[in-house]
Amino acid sequence: MEACVVGASTGGVAALRRLLRGLDAGFRPSVIVVQHTGTEGFGMLVSLLRDSCALPVSEARAREPVLPGHVYLAPPRYHLLVEHRRHFSLSVDERVCHVRPSADVLFASAAEVWREQLVAVLLTGANDDGARGAAQVRGLGGKLIVQDPAEAEAPEMPAAALRLAGADHLLPLAGIAPLLMKLAGRPAA
């Protein structure tokens, strides 16, 4: 696995903190996260995740290369995409599933770049963003991990992904980081 894309919405901040806490400093794949938040909450989100994670965490910036072992967050009000040369680009195209940034947009572009080397994770959320993108990830040979809707704070997002894309792994939140570690060839924490 070279990269991991993560989509989360309602209840996502707590879920992301738990997920990232389970990755150690030797985790090499790039981690790219779309969490729906307002402009106000974003700075707070970056610092919260920084505190919960052994890896460097920063806002994804246009034209910046996607580095291994780094966690990136999509900035509010922009879609985040990955280009073939493995750098980020941003767009202010129309909202997708009523949101911008949209996990669909990130997942679809990342799927094209990393193909079988990509793992997508869909966490708690109260809309259906990410489902189409997840289907594209699987269609191009990537793996999809979906948080069990039964235990998600908001079940709609993982449930929508399951309906449209199915999943390679359906797991409670606590099981996702260990699986990512395994897929990245790390010993479990």
Partner: peptide
């Protein structure tokens, strides 16, 4: 044009 968003459009 940046390819990823152009393709989407």
């Amino acid at each position: 044009y940046a390819p990823a968003s152009f393709k989407r459009r």
